[in-house]
Simulated scan of single mutants.
Amino acid sequence: MEITSNAALVVVDVQKGFDESEFWGPRNNPAADENIASLIAAWQDTDRPVVFVRHDSNKPGSPLRTGYEGNDFKEYVEERRGKGGGPELLVTKSVNSAFYGTPDLDDWFKAVGITQVVLAGIQTNMCVETTARMGGNLGYDVLVPLDATHTFDLTGPNGWRLTADELARASAVSLHGGGFARVVTTGELVAAVRP
């Protein structure tokens, strides 16, 4: 696997509010946080760019609302901010795609010559998938380490309910099969960036 020297790691919405299980319901992939942490370390240790994305919800009851503790990054993310030798950016957003945040992610990528993007974080089938689809549409080489994401069970129309694992697999199939992104593993990425 070829990972460019300036491939950006985009860490999506790894916030304390997602630990409030009574709000979100059952989740999948308990190893996601450990995998996200290892990607951040690998990117920072090799001086690659890291983008931290924070969801600032404008919904009054959301665990991710601004001014509430749940809006904060999880400790292992906050501890790593500012620790890398490469460029770092904080993007805030109130919608699913990090490309509709502040500052403009597409503009920043173009200004520093980034063409390859790795997306990890929460939720697999929401903000990670939406950002991956937009990144693919914008012409970026997008990689999604599925094991560095997680999501929650969800009910849709007609009472249809999918488990978090089913939703993650559906996202992986849509992204990879649809040509928006390559779905990979954390291990493959870490091995590719570490000499």
Rank of each mutant, 00 (worst) to 15 (best):
A7N: 07
A7V: 02
V10E: 01
V14R: 15
Q15W: 06
Q15H: 07
F18E: 02
E20H: 10
P30C: 10
D33N: 10
E34C: 00
A37R: 13
A37M: 03
I40Q: 01
I40Y: 01
A42H: 07
W43S: 08
Q44A: 14
Q44F: 10
D45I: 06
P49Q: 11
P49I: 12
V53D: 02
N58F: 11
K59I: 14
K59S: 11
G61E: 15
P63I: 12
R65E: 10
R65W: 08
T66V: 15
G67P: 06
G70H: 12
R80P: 05
G86I: 14
P87A: 13
E88T: 11
L90P: 00
L90C: 01
K93T: 10
N96M: 08
S97P: 01
Y100K: 10
T102N: 11
F109V: 06
T115W: 00
L119Y: 15
T124L: 08
M126C: 12
C127G: 08
E129K: 14
T131Q: 04
R133V: 06
L138K: 07
Y140N: 03
P145K: 07
P145A: 07
D147H: 14
A148F: 03
A148T: 11
T151W: 08
L154D: 05
L154W: 01
T155C: 10
G156W: 09
G159L: 09
T163Y: 09
A164P: 05
D165F: 13
L167I: 06
A170D: 07
S171W: 05
S171M: 06
S174W: 00
G177M: 07
R182L: 04
V184R: 09
L189I: 12
P195V: 07
P195A: 09
